[in-house]
Simulated assay, not measured.
Amino acid sequence: MPLDSLVHNPRNARQDLEGVEGLADTYEDAGVLQPCLVIPVQTFREAFPEDADKLPAQGHVVLAGNRRLAAARRAGLATLPVHLNPKLKTRLGILIAAATENIAREELKPFEELATIEELKAELGTYDAVAKKLGKTAGWVSQRRRLGNLEPELREALERRTPGMTIELARDLGKLKKRDEQLAAWKVEQERVARRADDPKAEKRPKAKKASRVPAQGGADGGGGAPLDDGAKSRRDACLLAIATGTGDLPRLSIIAAQVPVDPDEAVALAGQWLTEAAEGSSALDVDTLANEEGTDRQLAAALALALARCEIHLTRTSGADSAHARAYTHWLETHTDEQPAAAESAPTA
């Protein structure tokens, strides 16, 4: 379609069209490869009468591809490839189409995603319905909603990409209800970043990096503070990988874990360390928050970590003497990870 017949979506979730200059340079050389999603202006007017005065009388509104439209204009192109979807006529349908396109292409910033979720929630009524319409989990929606709880200083730090402020940290801070708690936690992270800046090689030392993959066990080392042997270290690396990737047959592992005598606090401590390493956060194990909208993804990761911790602590403590459970647990690891039993463990675990 001719560029002069296309207009930007007045409800576009993207507040800033960044990188238009660089995109325009590529268009001058290769043209536009990805079409924009458009609907007639009249259709948009009927769905959003409150925005009618922002649109011309005729033409088409770009629902997905507003940055492409801006870059095409900057590059001096005469036309733009588009996909015209005549089925998009309702307010809700238009909102969902624009949201899914932007989210799938990862074109939205964190607070733009939050604004999109809130807009859809106003139409659909519940956050569960929003997750379903977007093809996302309840946990995905819940994580983004936490950003709405951030104090203004922390919002600004995230938007400015202040060193140390990551999207993962921002979501964890958003779980803290009190302003003082959020600011105190952010101060601790800033101090950690400062220390790392003073010693930039500290996190690059091979020994330190290897140690971070096998969390300190806090008493789960077989008793008496004895160091873990190579077999236990290998298993625990495999456990961490399984948690980080969300792989494995959780029901089978849960049955095994439920039948081993392990100190609950010790299992929670080990599982929490693994969850922290896997970027899920040990708070996923907090019983007090299980009833809120933490989301099934984090809860599944927590359940997997806790089951693995129980099995691993029991095997480390008994050295495989409980052969039935040892066989079941090590078979699970071999099935769902790259873990292979050490030669010294072959007799009790075969």
Rank of each mutant, 00 (worst) to 15 (best):
M1D: 05
M1R: 09
L3W: 08
D4E: 14
D4G: 01
S5T: 12
V20R: 00
T26A: 10
E28P: 04
D29I: 15
A30L: 14
G31C: 14
G31T: 13
L37G: 05
P40S: 01
R45N: 10
R45D: 08
G59W: 11
H60F: 15
N66D: 01
L69S: 05
R73G: 09
A75D: 09
G76E: 12
A78N: 02
L80R: 11
P81F: 01
P81W: 06
L84E: 15
N85Y: 02
N85A: 15
I94W: 08
A97E: 10
A97V: 06
E106R: 15
E107I: 06
F111Y: 15
L114R: 15
T116E: 14
G125I: 03
D128S: 13
A129G: 07
K132W: 09
K132T: 15
T137S: 15
G139V: 04
V141A: 10
R146V: 00
P152L: 00
R160Q: 14
R161I: 05
T162N: 00
P163F: 09
P163G: 02
G164N: 07
E168S: 09
L169A: 13
A170L: 09
R171L: 00
L173T: 11
K178S: 12
R179W: 00
D180W: 00
E181N: 07
L183Q: 09
A184R: 11
A185T: 12
V188E: 15
Q190P: 03
V193T: 08
R195Q: 01
D199M: 03
D199F: 04
P200D: 06
K201V: 07
V214S: 07
D229R: 11
D230Y: 07
D230M: 12
R235K: 07
D237A: 05
D237F: 02
L240F: 05
I243E: 05
T245Q: 15
T247L: 13
P251A: 06
P251H: 04
L253T: 04
L253Y: 01
S254W: 00
S254P: 01
I256H: 08
I256A: 10
A257V: 11
A257T: 05
D265K: 13
L270I: 05
A271W: 07
Q273M: 11
W274C: 00
S283M: 01
L285P: 02
D286M: 08
V287F: 09
N292R: 07
E294K: 00
T296P: 00
T296M: 03
A301C: 09
L304E: 01
A305T: 06
L308T: 03
A309M: 03
A309C: 02
C311R: 06
I313H: 06
R317I: 04
A324N: 12
W332K: 04
T335Q: 14
E339G: 02
P341C: 06
A342N: 11
A343G: 05
P348L: 10
